[in-house]
Design a protein around this nucleic acid. Structure first.
Lengths: 248, 248
DNA sequence: CGCCGCCTTGACTCCCTTCAATGCGAGTGG
DNA sequence: CCACTCGCATTGAAGGGAGTCAAGGCGGCG
């Protein structure tokens, strides 16, 4: 009995403290005891197959999800079937924060590749957050960061032309990947052209043409889903000035 | 001494419980004692003159603001001077939530008319939220609602044409005003055409033309800043189908 | 092989932008 | 009182960038 509890304890503790996404994720900055308490909230983590939904708009909010491995897209659908991709999420990022507003998911979340998530019971998370100020603050930050990201995207859709949007998208992805220990100059796109297009408020054909333009300028080499950034500085020049004055 | 404290107490208590925005604002659902504790966090409320900034991008986060009277716009600026209006806020709505992400405001907030706000010390609010679950939950909801709103706006910028965007904008404003006890069919726009345009990702000329189109269809009567909705149903028909399937 | 999903490219169209002129009301000063 | 300016709104004409439609390519897989 005691042994089982110990094993469980070890297993649960291992969930977060062993996670490669720890430093970008909800438990960032928590001490060991705090981490253990958060770990206890995390039900068995599970896999989501490529293309499978994690949740859908209209589902009641019970769980939030932290991405452990893989990537997701979130989107909203209009009644007449238009899709707007609202984001692409990487390990350490949270899914489902929009659902807190009305206790109901407003987005659909789909895995872009075979992935793994840590489900967190939201009401228990709120309860624990009252006792762990660092956790409470992290949750607030995650929510707020989502707002800031959406503002960046709004700036792109409202004020940038198609090539600028595409360059900004690639740079953003590059930066987030490099933060996670991947190469910033060579990576694989997990999403289709039409999903990039929806995210950027463009048609998939426009994405293809944008890619062709970047290739002509010898800024990138893109073959299918494979991206190589040949001239990072030149790529940044395309969007310098478009970005919020606050960042960097 | 005792009398002063009582007077103060009454004054502070009056701040929220007398406020016409109470039912949409942060203290919604708090009981009397809880309300009193929140009231104590609210420093002296103050006025902001039309056109004046409440805060600017880059300012450190110390205060959040609840709007008591009036209206604001928030916007982000790019380095090369492009402005993207990210929202128009009415009484009971919160300003500054984006700043939690990095302890620094990322938006500019300007009063669209002579207004009055309730400043709330953020770190104290976080502290109090640990003791008042309802307050904690409200704060989370406000943050999450902001995300949902941004998603709606993204859907507009990404998938709707200029007339649909304008109609959706007017309907949204109409609905929020009516929730606050104003007429849903007759109201005054507090913002300029170019601000509406920036919000909707369009030029001000396109807004003017959109208004002309709505007028030709006898859906609205718009003279300068004065709006009269003549055919609410018809206006809704324009955007039915464009909206997220989850809402309503 | 042949189908299917996804990507690419070209030609044409159209909606929104750009540029420009005009209107119009408020505030100011002669 | 009127002339003048200034900020904001309106409307027209022309141009361009992204959308639409269509054809074809490429690669994976039954």
């Amino acid at each position: 009995m005691t042994e089982v509890r110990l094993l469980q304890g070890q297993h649960l503790k291992a969930a977060c403290s062993n996670c490669s996404a720890l430093e970008f994720c909800l438990p960032f900055g928590l001490n060991t005891q705090e981490l253990e308490r958060l770990d206890k909230l995390i039900l068995q983590r599970f896999k989501v197959r490529k293309g499978a939904p994690l949740y859908r708009a209209g589902d009641p909010l019970r769980l939030l999800y932290a991405i452990r491995i893989g990537s997701f897209k979130t989107s909203v659908l209009s009644l007449d079937g238009r899709e707007q991709v609202t984001g692409f999420q990487l390990p350490g990022e949270m899914l489902g924060l929009d659902a807190i507003s009305a206790d109901e998911h407003t987005c659909n979340a789909f895995a872009l590749e075979d992935s793994e998530v840590c489900p967190i019971h939201f009401s228990q998370l709120e309860k624990l957050a009252r006792e762990l100020p660092a956790l409470q603050h992290n949750l607030n930050r995650f929510l707020s960061r989502e707002i800031v990201r959406d503002h960046d995207l709004l700036m792109m859709l409202g004020n940038m032309n198609s090539d600028e949007r595409l360059a900004a998208f690639l740079l953003n992805l590059s930066q987030r990947l490099s933060m996670r220990g991947y190469s910033s100059s060579e990576f694989i796109l997990k999403m289709r052209r039409d999903e990039i297009g929806s995210y950027l408020g463009l048609r998939l054909e426009t994405i293809c043409r944008g890619i062709a333009h970047l290739r002509e300028q010898e800024l990138v080499e893109i073959a299918g889903r494979e991206v190589k950034v040949l001239n990072m500085h030149g790529l940044k020049q395309l969007v310098v000035g478009c970005h919020s004055a606050v960042l960097h």
